[in-house]
Design a protein around this nucleic acid. Sequence first.
DNA 1: GAGCAATTTCTTGTATACAGGAAATGTTTT
DNA 2: AAAACATTTCCTGTATACAAGAAATTGCTC
Lengths: 256, 256
Amino acid sequence: MGVYMNDSLKARSLRLDDLLRSRSRRSTRNEGSTKDEQVYERIFSAIIAHRLRPGDRLPEDALAETFEVSRTVIRKVLQRLAHERLVNIQAKRGAMVSKPTVEEARNVFAARRLIETGVMDQVVDRLTPAALEELRELTRAEDRALEAGNQRLALQLSGEFHQRLLDVAGNEELSTFLAQLLSRSSLIIAVYGPGWKGASHCESHTVLLNELEAGNVDALRQTMGEHLDELEAALNMEAVDADLPDFKRIFNGILD
Amino acid sequence: MGVYMNDSLKARSLRLDDLLRSRSRRSTRNEGSTKDEQVYERIFSAIIAHRLRPGDRLPEDALAETFEVSRTVIRKVLQRLAHERLVNIQAKRGAMVSKPTVEEARNVFAARRLIETGVMDQVVDRLTPAALEELRELTRAEDRALEAGNQRLALQLSGEFHQRLLDVAGNEELSTFLAQLLSRSSLIIAVYGPGWKGASHCESHTVLLNELEAGNVDALRQTMGEHLDELEAALNMEAVDADLPDFKRIFNGILD
DNA sequence: GAGCAATTTCTTGTATACAGGAAATGTTTT
DNA sequence: AAAACATTTCCTGTATACAAGAAATTGCTC
C-alpha cells in the first residue's frame, strides 16, 4: 500500500478487504500469527484467484524457497490444502492443484443445491437487519466489479455472497462444508468455465435478497435451486480433461 | 489371530471386518502402505471406539514412542485428525481428543438431518438389490451385537449403516462429509450419552429399509428425520461440559 | 502463610540431513 | 530402428537436532 493513496481509495480498499475477509480466514482456529497460516493464505488465495491453475505442480523445494521457510512448513500447508481437496498429493510424486473431474463437479453442485436450499428456513428465521444490509452491500460490490469488467473479483464476491448467506443459518459445521464446496467451485470454473460470464447471476442474488426480506421460504428455495442450476449449466463439461494438452487438435492446422 | 480359531469363527470375523471396512478406510486415496496410514487407523479406531475419550491429551512424544515412529509421522496424523475435527490442536499446547460443545452437537445433528433426509430421493433411485442386502445384513449384525450386549459394536454398526445408506446416493462429496459427521457423532455420544442404549433405534433401521424397498421417499424422509431426532433426544445435553468435575454438585450430599 | 517472581521442565515449532522411490533420459542389444 | 535395460536426477518420506514458548514448580519477599 503506497503512502500517496488518497482517503476515498483507502476507504474503498478497506471495505473490499472486509467484504472478502471471512472466506480466506475460514476454519483458522488460532490467530494467523504462525508461519504456516501466512503461507496457507497466500497459496489458497492464488488458487482461488486462478493465479495457480488446476494441474499446476507444487514442488516443496520451490515453494520453500519462494516463501523463505523450510519444507516442513510447506508440507504442513500442502497437507491442509489436500484435506480441503484443493490440491492433490500423490505418494512420492508430489502435489498439484486439483483438477476436478466432471463427476466431482456434478457432485459438488448437487451438494451445494442440497445444502443451500435446505437451510433457507433457518436463514429466514435468523436473519438480522445488519446481515441483510451486508448481503446487499456484497451484491452492490459484485455489480460494480462486473461493470468495471473485473470478472475475477466478481466471482470471488459471488462466492462470498453464498457463504455469508449460509452463515446466517448459524450452523458452523454446514458453513465450513460450504466453504470447501465454494473453493472447489472456483476450481471447477477454472477448468470448465473458461469463458465465464458472471453477468447472468448477479441479478439472481438481488432476487434472492428480495425474497429473503419478504420471508418467502418456498420461493427462496426455488430461486436458489434454479440459480445453482444456471451456474452448473453455464459450465462446459464436455471438455476433455486429459493430463496432457491435446496436441493433435492444437497442431491440426496447416500453419502452426 | 490365533491358529486355533475354527472356521465358523473365522468366517464370522472376516464378515465383521468386512462390515466395518469402509468407514475406517474412508477418504484414504492411496493404499494403506505408508506408516502414517497405519498410525492414523489405530488412533482413529481408538477414538471411535471410545478407548480414547474426549479431553484425553495426545502428546507427540508418547505416541511416537508407542508406535515406534518419529514425531514427524505423529504430527502428520494429528493434523489430519484435527482437520476432521476429531482432535483439537492448540498452538504450543498440544493435541487432545475433541470435546464437542452442546452447540456443536446440535449443529452436527442438524447437518445430519439435512443431508440424510435430503438425498433419500437419490438413494431410492440408485438402490441396487446387492446394496439392499448389505444394508439388511448390517441391521442383522447390529441386532446380534445388541443381544450379545456389545453396545460399542452396535454403535459402530449403526454408524456404518447410515454411512452405507448414504453411499447409495453416489455422491462422494456428501459421503465424505457424512463420514465426518458420523465420527463426530461418536464423540458426542461419548460426552453426552453415558448411559447410551442402542436398543431403541435398531428397529428404526429395519423400518427404514422396508420403506426404502417400497420406494416411498416421503415416508423415508419422515422416518429418517424422526430417527435422528430420537438419537439427539436420547442425549443428555444438560450436563455441564466443564474442564473440571463439578465438585460442588459431587460433594453436595452429607455423606460422601 | 500468601502472593509474586524467577526458573525449570515439558512440549511443540522449525530446520535440515539423509534415505529412498519414481520417472526421464541415455545406452545397449537384438 | 525398436525395445529392454541401466543410470541419473529429481522429488518426497522420515528421523533427528535445536529453538522457543507455555505451564508448573520452586524460591523469595512481605
